[in-house]
Amino acid sequence: MQTTPLSEAPFMRVLILITVFLAFPMTLTARADSLKQLQQNLPTRVLNWTAEPADQFYDPATIFSYIDGGAEVYKAYHMQQCFSRRYANPGAPAIVLDIFDMGSSLNAFGVFTHDTDGEVLALGQDARLKPGWLSFWSDRFFVSIYTEEETPAAAQAVRALGQQVAGRIKPQGAKPRILARLPTEGLDSGSIRYLHHPVVLNYHYYLADENILDISHRTPAVLARYQRDRKEARLLLVDYPDPQSAEKALAGFLKDYLPDADSRGAALLENGRWAAAELQGQLLAVVLESDTRQLAVSLLAQVFNSK
């Protein structure tokens, strides 16, 4: 079966590469200016909280000094710049606004999907609220607003600030095209994780101590959970730059992870669940864990029939 390639034709990719290369310095400046521009329009006061005088900017080299530990996630999604502003209110916990320019809406969406627990809010292009923390994505920005301690007044201010910031960013970011390849039946949309770094995959689903699927910035991938008739499965889709790369990745995966796969690429795991893999063109689909073989095979079939 022939599948529609997700990337452009080779000559188009070369053209895009040349264009990006020539425009690179200008693009960086434009992005930095844009976050600066956003800064000018942000509120200096929210309810009883007032912005502290010194806003901060961090780049990929300095972000580790600001975010200890978790910065690697933002780096994995190609963070360009982070803007930070603190709002103070004497006798109340500070509120911290961080806006990450992720360089593209795809990466902003991706870093948002890293943690999607919490109450869904209609803010930006998608938002979550949990005690002490509001996050949303819009266009190429990921926005985090947290309070150092949850109080009713601080919670109110966090929401108000979120509304104001969201109102200053046009919610026009495109989502990754690979999401469209996920079968919809039984899909837990809250479980979707968009990624292109093996560290992020291993965080959500530990596969191996090596990058056995050759996941990189050139391979957009999506991980999602399914439930059908009380049976569960996890599906991973990886879009490689070309069929040869995809074939190589599949061969490596079968060798290291599913050497006992049957003719349909399925194998019974040691925990009684099933894993299976199938490749068509440059799209690799892997059912990492499925309660039944039938569900695994059915998911793979639907991936390649859903174009």
Partner: peptide, 11 residues
């Protein structure tokens, strides 16, 4: 832990 800084006094 919550958020990029993985911290809130609440917890």
């Amino acid at each position: 832990g919550i958020g990029p800084h993985h911290f809130s006094r609440t917890y």
